[in-house]
C-alpha cells in the first residue's frame, strides 16, 4: 500500500472540479484531494499549510482574483513553496503563454479533457510522484499526451 498522495486542485470552475474528482475517484488510489476556488485562496492555503504541503498541485490558469500564471510565479519565489511540483491543468492557451509557464517552472501542461482521458493523465502524474519523482521534461514534451 503506497503512501497517501496529497493533491491540491486550484480551479474556479465547479464542473471541472467535478470532472477531476470523478477521474480521480475512478483511479482508486490512495489519495487525499483538497480544492481551492481561486488564486488568492490558493496562496492563502499554501502559506498556512506549514509542513503539510501537497505532493502535487494541479493549477488552472483562468481564475478570478489571481490567475494561475501569477500564482506559479509567486510559488516559485517563496523558498518553502518552490519545490511543490506544479501541473498546469487548463484549456488551450497561446504558444507564448505555454512557453512562459514552462520557463517559470511548471512541470507538465494538461489540456482539460473529459474524465476518461483525464484519468489516464492523472494516473501518469501520480505514478511519477510515487516513484522517481516529478521533474521538468524537455520543452517539446511539456504538453502531456498519454496514449490511449
Amino acid at each position: 500500500m503506497e503512501d497517501t498522495i496529497k493533491i491540491l486542485l486550484a480551479d474556479d470552475d465547479e464542473d471541472d472540479r467535478f470532472f477531476f474528482e470523478l477521474a480521480l475517484s475512478e483511479l482508486k488510489r490512495n489519495v487525499k484531494l483538497d480544492s481551492v476556488v481561486n488564486g488568492e485562496k490558493l496562496m492563502h492555503y499554501l502559506n498556512g499549510a506549514g509542513d503539510k504541503l501537497p505532493d502535487v498541485l494541479f493549477l488552472d490558469i483562468n481564475m478570478p482574483k489571481k490567475n494561475g500564471a501569477e500564482c506559479l510565479k509567486e510559488i516559485k519565489a517563496i523558498d518553502s513553496l518552490k519545490d511543490i511540483p506544479v501541473i498546469i491543468h487548463s484549456t488551450a492557451l497561446s504558444d507564448l503563454m505555454t512557453e512562459s509557464l514552462y520557463d517559470n517552472g511548471a512541470i507538465y501542461y494538461i489540456h482539460k479533457k473529459e474524465p476518461k482521458k483525464l484519468k489516464k493523465c492523472i494516473d501518469h502524474i501520480l505514478n511519477l510522484v510515487a516513484n522517481e519523482g516529478l521533474s521538468q521534461p524537455a520543452k517539446n514534451d511539456f504538453i502531456l499526451c498519454v496514449k490511449e
Binding site: D15, F19, L22, T91, A92, K112, E114, P115, K116
Partner: peptide, 13 residues
C-alpha cells in the same frame, strides 16, 4: 469552447 467541452463531457457521462 468551454461550454461546448462541458456539453460533450456531460453527454458522454
Amino acid at each position: 469552447q468551454e461550454p461546448l467541452r462541458k456539453i460533450k463531457t456531460f453527454a458522454n457521462l
